[in-house]
Design a protein around this nucleic acid. Sequence first.
DNA 1: TATTCATTTCGTAAAATTACGAAACAAATG
DNA 2: CATTTGTTTCGTAATTTTACGAAATGAATA
Lengths: 105, 105
Amino acid sequence: MNKIATPKKFYTPDQEKIALYAKALSHPARVFIMDYLAKNTERCCYSGDMAENLPIARSTLSEHLKELKKAGLIQGEINTPYIKYCINRANWEEAKVMFNDFFNR
Amino acid sequence: MNKIATPKKFYTPDQEKIALYAKALSHPARVFIMDYLAKNTERCCYSGDMAENLPIARSTLSEHLKELKKAGLIQGEINTPYIKYCINRANWEEAKVMFNDFFNR
DNA sequence: TATTCATTTCGTAAAATTACGAAACAAATG
DNA sequence: CATTTGTTTCGTAATTTTACGAAATGAATA
């Protein structure tokens, strides 16, 4: 094989994933957003709605939404000129299970 | 009363706390450490033991331990020249409950 | 008392995060 | 086709995070 200086994988995929989800939730604004989306599963949520409940600039909120999207916890459905945000159920469930397992190891 | 420019509290204590715990867990090395401590509740854990299982400098590990201590997830009992680390059970339990509630809102 | 030991703190540097307002965007509307 | 609308991206700046090796620490030991 002759692999040179194989960079050992030190963290398990689970550890990497938990860290990733945790990072997404490591800012109170993003926790707030997830709470907000979880509380309003029916009438779905526009960036502007949330901006009015948050003490941050719209552009900053947009970056937080981007972070959550990047981690896979939310998704945005375009509904011009609005963008309807909601929780990504599959990944949300995965995160829930992973954290639960983590705390019960 | 005459409070001037009261800075509104925008995030609930729960939201702040979840963000805090999440931040503590937002690096794979710190998830690894918690896993390690959870797996070795009996024969307790020295910094050096963990250092040998991690691809980071001892000083870096020490900073990660400091972070986890700051968040309240672990505690270190001095046992010169060693320091025996273990999970802070009360806060660990609290974090577990908070995340569980969070994912079930 | 000088040395050893496991560990932490310090000094430093690179990279990532958070934040804002201005500008850009893309679709619907006048 | 110019304007409006909700939202994002860009440019920028301040702060925080991550990382390392060197130096410091503090208790036990030679």
